[in-house]
Design a protein around this nucleic acid. Structure first.
Length: 588
RNA sequence: GCACCCGUAGCUCAGCUGGAUAGAGCGCUGCCCUCCGAAGGCAGAGGUCGCACGUUCGAAUCGUGCCGGGUGCGCCA
């Protein structure tokens, strides 16, 4: 149950009633009406802006309209008090008896509490990572990977039919560079002394690829011209790199539903037109493509600039600043052309909603890609692009030195091995994705309050510990959700307990808001608050023993409190699973 | 030069798609362990929300212009 959604319905009902009574005009637009928690808890449990939003259309003063609405809302079951405050806020305080019902509903839905139908089971494609298959993943890829994965989890929980997709850039010049680099290692394995020239990949992760080539082809590739060996070597190398990347992703608990190869878009088997060929034909037919030339860029001068005519997409017609080239001077397609075909393919596979997760360095490509999706799908498809900012890797506040030239960049695997999956995932999500993130290797393994990963996990462990202790004190007490839901929850009348129930009641709304904004970090911050409230209530029991969760001589009260603890643990586990973080039953 | 992102407490950051007296952690000051896990809790001090106009009942949030930081800017992916 979503308390705020329920009361939003009540508010709309009240508006409708006032309409039929002639107090308000019929058919007022209630789209901007929201019911939300008041900023200050002393104002009540729920607040709505309805009177202020509707005042103009109703041609009434906000406060007068608020009084009318308040009268109706006061009659709703469970409402203890309705106040009008400030410029026309309507504050609603709920009867104390309301909260046990919320808690009972929570326990009844168990791990599904908070699950939403917001997405109406619509198909959404979330594309993320899409790292080039030219080497192991480094820390720079990590944030996008974790963010994309958590976003996919969040959307699935919010009722979308989510597909997780990885685009393999296996068609460009970079994989040819990879192949040449691997070929050198192959010769090295066959006994040749090699030097790796500037521009090729120096990393020793290609040595095993060289060995694999020897196993597969013996020395038969040595005498062939490049045109012959390159496709063979490239195929083996790409397979090997994708294997590494999948292993790295597995270390982060990330899996994909679909790996999509760029190469398939270019393929012209048996002389047939490729997918890109057909797309461009289609776009030409619809006058979205033309031959023309572009003005030279204004900023940093391009050294070998030459004015020439090229094949351009009319991006300016769809919100971009400049038309964009689709064909290179050597006649092959640009990356952009392939990417349009790729997104059109997603659309053709049934995804009207597409989400791409990109690194900050691709921010400049958002407009053209959105323009292309709009054009290629005739306005029926939509593309959201979420940008992940840089991660600065630190150790005790000092930047960790990385040098690509010497090949000593920090791999994703290094970081996961050093600090563990949970801290990596949580910290990557404990910041807005479009803000730069400092990741301190030393701090994220600290077990203290200023490490939110630990703090939240500890709350879950503590809750589990309470339930274990209760098992000893009351061995015959069944600890399952159904039994907890049947407890005498009205015994929970301490303000700290009610506060916890209120936080629990906010979870479904939080999920919908986070999903709508595509912001999984909100889940992380919510969990921190919930953990804090549990720790707080625990400590109150230290000063006042009657507030402890386990009261040896009051079985009913203990049972009600255990139900609360169980619900909190349930939600922490739920939220952590969205973030892809483990919810431990004890800390070590 | 242009586009996009960021600017909130000494530091690191939230701020619920425009709401009421702007919050948290760290750091600082002072408390709480014979007691369910102190790996925790409580209280205090600390702010011109980069600056200036504008939009309206109401702006940290939206618009415009500056200032400062980041990213990117035909035929790379």
């Amino acid at each position: 149950m979503n308390l705020f959604a329920i009361f939003a319905d009540h508010v709309r009902d009240a508006v409708r009633q006032l309409g039929t009574e002639g107090v308000l005009p019929d058919g007022l637009d209630v789209a901007r009406v929201v019911v939300e928690p008041p900023r200050d808890a002393s104002h009540g449990d729920l607040a709505t802006n309805a009177a202020m939003v509707l005042a103009k259309d109703a041609r009434m003063k906000p406060r007068d309209l608020a009084d009318k609405l308040a009268e109706k809302l006061g009659a709703v079951a469970g409402v203890a008090r309705v106040d009008v405050a400030g410029p026309g806020f309507i504050n609603i305080a709920l009867d104390l008896a309301y909260w046990p019902r919320v808690l009972a509903a929570t326990l009844a839905s168990g791990a599904d509490f908070g699950r939403s139908a917001l997405g109406t089971a619509a198909k959404v494609n979330v594309e993320y990572v899409s790292a080039n298959p030219t080497g192991p993943m480094h820390v720079g890829h990590c944030r996008g990977a974790v963010f994309g994965d958590a976003l996919a989890n969040l959307l699935a929980f919010a009722g979308y039919d989510v597909t997780r997709e990885y685009y393999i850039n296996d068609a460009g010049a970079q994989v040819d560079v990879l192949a040449r680099s691997a070929y050198l290692r192959y010769r090295e394995v066959l006994g040749e002394a090699i030097t790796i020239p500037e521009g090729l990949y120096p990393g020793d992760y290609l040595v095993p690829v060289g060995k694999a080539l020897v196993v597969k082809y013996a020395n038969t590739l040595l005498d062939k011209p490049e045109a012959d060996w390159l496709p063979l070597v490239r195929a083996v190398a790409i397979d090997a790199m994708m294997g590494m990347i999948r292993t790295d992703l597995a270390a982060l608990n990330i899996r994909f539903d679909t790996y999509f190869s760029e190469r398939t878009l270019h393929a012209r088997s048996g002389g047939n037109a490729s997918i890109i060929d057909r797309l461009l034909d289609d776009m030409r037919a619809r006058d979205l493509v033309y031959q023309g030339s572009l003005p030279p860029p204004k900023g940093a001068p391009v050294e070998d600039w030459e004015d020439r005519e090229q094949t351009l997409f009319r991006a300016t017609g769809f919100g971009d600043e400049i038309d964009r080239p689709l064909v290179k001077s050597d006649g092959t397609y640009t990356y952009f052309a392939a990417d349009i075909a790729y997104h059109k393919d997603k659309f053709d596979r049934g995804f009207k909603q597409m989400i791409d997760v990109w690194g900050a360095d691709h921010g400049g490509y958002i407009k053209r890609m959105q323009a292309a999706v709009k054009a290629a799908t005739a306005g029926e498809g939509s593309l959201d692009v979420e940008i992940c900012q840089l991660v600065r890797l630190l150790r005790n506040g000092e930047p960790v030195k990385m040098s690509k030239r010497s090949g000593t960049f920090v791999t994703l695997r290094d970081v996961v091995d050093e600090v563990g999956v949970d801290p990596v995932r949580f910290m990557m999500l404990y910041r807005k994705n479009d803000a730069v993130l400092d990741f301190d290797l030393a701090k994220v393994i600290e077990q203290s309050r200023d490490n939110p990963v630990f703090y939240v996990q500890y709350a879950h462990a503590r809750a589990s510990s309470i339930l274990r202790n209760a098992q000893e004190a009351f061995p015959d007490m069944p600890q399952d959700p159904a039994a907890f839901a049947a407890a005498d929850l009205a015994r929970l009348d301490d303000e700290g307990e009610i506060g916890l129930v209120k936080l629990i009641a906010a979870y479904p709304r939080l999920i919908e808001q986070a999903a709508g904004a595509r912001e999984p970090h909100r889940v992380a911050f919510y969990l921190y608050d919930l953990a804090s409230a549990l720790h707080g209530q625990w400590s109150r029991g230290k000063d006042r023993p009657h507030l402890r969760f386990i009261i040896e001589d009051d079985r009913n009260l203990t049972y009600a409190r255990l139900a609360l603890v169980h619900a909190v643990a349930l939600i922490i586990a739920s939220g952590l699973s969205i973030l892809g973080v483990d919810a431990p039953k004890e800390m070590r």
